[in-house]
Design a protein around this nucleic acid. Structure first.
Lengths: 231, 231
DNA sequence: GAGGGACGTTAAAAAGCGTTAAAAGCCAAC
DNA sequence: GTTGGCTTTTAACGCTTTTTAACGTCCCTC
């Protein structure tokens, strides 16, 4: 079963390690970053289900990082951690688009409860679907673990990248597969050339999917792609 | 503009009144109940977007009320208010299915921020889920999830923006689609240039809709547009 | 009915995407 | 280690979508 993935950005190595261990014990996958800059880089390379950001940190503080994240991503929940309980700070945290704000010292249990409450409310993601290996749409049958796309009596062997991209489209069928998500998950970096490479693969997949006119990959301009089947 | 409706259950008449007045000033519709029993009755009579429950109350405490609510309704967010900051209590609040937990005394501003953060999340989720995907008006059939506008035997492929705008007009058919609403929902910012861009798209849509003379996009000067079909 | 703000339309600029082909990278067989 | 075949990336060009700009018209207010 796939786990929820958390980005923890905390400069105090003790607290960071405690957070990491506790949350991993509770069944989450975590990545711990020692400052805002490393946190920013990690955020741009991977997809996380939730971010836990300390506010006062060297190099780049939590508010600045949160603002950067919110420029492109309004969705991923953010929890702030801080030693200051100042009213203005709290309000600033929510103004930026944070989802919760915990003042140190807090109990691990309370953090966990708040984290769960947020994920329960926000997560549209179905973890079970992420483990799915076979998909059907239109007249196609897609076996992602065998890299095979079947239609009628013919089989198309997919390359690794074709396979991963089609899989992500299937997991998000009838919803938008965001460009940035695909780039992070499949190409591990959201850069100009990777984006061009992805466009090439969309073309390749569209050619394969031509066999059934009722299946299409729609372009959602500025956001990504959407796999739809008309029947 | 429809307001969010809040159920406030608080036995302290002073705090209750302050909450009510403050939140109404901030644009919410509220109903204040003096204890859990009255709160329970009110909850069963009306639909609320969020509940604010004090925990220690005569007749029926906040936890009991929350449990009742969660028996039938897992969705409506619940914020607990309490004088006790005991850890077990907080955790119990989240265990029941609460969404946030504020310890008295708290600032009205912080309550408002937390409330907004929760509503921002839940309303986004709802919009994504319970949205209609197919519309009919005049001789048109509009499949918004496929970005297709059909009339007679022809299909018009819509661009992403055309599609989103037409969808918003359809949702508000025969009523005014406010300019600011459209700009916020589709362009994510109500600025001068986005407003001009939207005008361009209204022109594009009007061209597409020319196929049926009985369908029109009316201009409501100073407010927005209205999609109407005369037959 | 004059003036200013709001809207309508068209065209050009900018940004984003689609497609093809060539270059580079990878890997297994020889 | 070199070859050949396949996958992936880079490059280039053309096209579509979206935004910006400019100018004309409408419409409300005074």
């Amino acid at each position: 079963m796939e786990k929820y993935k958390l980005l923890i950005v905390e400069d105090d190595p003790n607290l960071g390690q405690i957070l990491k261990e506790y949350l991993e014990l509770k069944g989450y996958e975590t990545l711990l970053c020692p400052d805002g800059e490393v946190g920013s880089k990690s955020y741009n390379k991977e997809v996380f289900d939730l971010c836990i950001l300390d506010i006062m940190m060297p190099k780049k503080d939590g508010f600045t990082l949160a603002k950067e994240i919110r420029l492109s991503d309004k969705k991923t929940p953010i929890i702030f951690l801080t030693a200051k309980s100042m009213k203005e700070d709290t309000i600033e945290g929510f103004r930026i688009g944070g989802d919760d704000y915990l003042t140190k010292p807090f109990s691990m249990e309370e953090l966990l409860m708040r984290l769960k409450a947020i994920i329960r409310r926000t997560s549209v993601k179905d973890l079970a679907k992420n483990d799915q290996k076979e998909f059907e749409f239109g007249q196609f049958k897609f076996l992602s673990d065998k890299q095979l796309l079947k239609i009628n009596n013919s089989e198309i062997k997919l390359t690794t990248k074709e396979n991963e991209l089609l899989r992500l489209l299937c997991v998000n069928k009838d919803e938008v597969m965001e460009r940035t998500t695909a780039l992070k998950k499949i190409w591990h970096d959201d850069t100009y050339f990777n984006a061009r490479s992805m466009d090439v693969y969309i073309t390749k997949l569209r050619k394969h999917l031509k066999e059934d006119q009722n299946v299409q990959i729609l372009t959602i301009h500025g956001r990504g792609f959407k796999l739809v089947a008309y029947i």
